[in-house]
């Protein structure tokens, strides 16, 4: 099993040794976001801002205006919501080169509860002009997402799960901003995932094939914005049916982004699988909560099979 945060910690430290413009800001959560490796290696380029996310984002704006490449680390909920206006007005509006790398996305904060969950952030972030929104699904994809984010001059929101996850992406897969990764080609149905739901999508695809003889295409959309409209259109024109799978509210996230494409091209049927617009009403580990929200392989498979009957 891998961990996206671990990938972030080690890869940002590697990138930091060749690019001295990179500075890290964190709000008393370095051990949770795993940016502490960078702090140990580059103490002069690491700034502890304390528990003050609005200030942290504003400081990042100031550093970016002076030519630095600030990486802001915190939990998704606290950047996308607590500091939302600073992100929008101080980073996105002036189009500054700030990278917001946030952890504990979706339900991955587990028993910390809904205050620490983040099921709204994709919707919030993708509606902000100038913002690039990326949701990698495993360690290798995180590495490539990170490298791609540094290659562009502008604000980027990178959403990380805190959970351990299987590594699916290999160095043969190439992540590009604005492009889908076609993990598997198929003809009967399209499964679209983002973040760590990439794993569930692949498992569902395996079971569809082995147990039911159904051929599915799997698109991993780590790039939520810009969004690869062409790949989605191309796939749905061939399969006619598309399923979105995300650890996010079905309103505003991947499901909405794909629905917009389907509506605009005027062909194909869609179902959105995610969190059905409610705060979780129970307590438990991330795995337990995903099961509770029917976001496990078997629960998703059932929905897909039912959809195929329509």
């Amino acid at each position: 099993m891998g961990n996206i945060r671990k990938s972030y910690g080690s890869n940002i430290t590697t990138l930091g040794s060749t690019n001295d413009k990179i500075v890290l800001l964190e709000g008393d959560l370095a051990d949770s976001t795993m940016s502490d490796l960078f702090e140990a290696k580059f103490p002069d380029r690491h700034f502890q801002i304390g528990i003050a996310e609005q200030n942290m984002v504003g400081i990042a704006a100031g550093l970016a205006l002076e030519g630095k490449i600030p990486f802001v680390n915190s939990f998704a909920a606290f950047i996308a919501m607590r500091a939302c206006e600073q992100v929008r007005t101080d980073i996105a509006y002036p189009n500054l080169n700030v990278k917001l790398v946030v952890s504990h996305a979706g339900l991955s904060a587990g028993s910390a509860g809904p205050s620490h969950h983040s099921i709204e952030d994709i919707g919030i972030m993708r509606s902000i002009p100038n913002m690039t929104v990326l949701c990698p699904g495993d360690e290798e994809e995180m590495k490539q997402v990170l490298e791609a984010s540094i290659a562009i001059d502008g604000p980027v929101y990178i959403r990380m799960s805190a959970m351990d996850c299987p590594n699916i992406y290999t160095s043969k897969n190439k992540f590009n901003i604005g492009k889908a990764t076609i993990l598997r080609e198929g003809s009967d149905i399209t499964l679209v995932s983002t973040g760590t739901m990439m794993n569930e999508a692949m498992q569902v695809s395996d079971l569809l094939d082995k147990q039911h003889g159904i051929s599915s295409e799997v698109l991993q959309m780590a790039s939520i914005k810009p969004f690869d409209i062409d790949s989605i259109s191309h796939s749905i024109r061939r399969t006619g049916k598309i399923v979105t799978i995300e650890e996010h509210n079905i309103i505003g996230g991947l499901g909405s982004a794909v629905s917009e494409v389907v509506a605009e091209i005027g062909t194909g049927k869609i179902i959105r699988i995610g969190i059905n617009d409610h705060f979780t009403d129970t307590v438990g580990t991330p795995e337990f909560l995903l099961e509770h929200e029917f976001l496990t392989t078997n629960a998703i498979l059932k929905k897909v099979l039912k959809f195929l009957e329509t």
């Binding site: 400081i59 205006l65 101080d90």
Partner: peptide, 12 residues
Amino acid sequence: HGLSVGVGRALS
């Protein structure tokens, strides 16, 4: 908002 941005510029 402005004072935070000033802190960032001064830190730089």
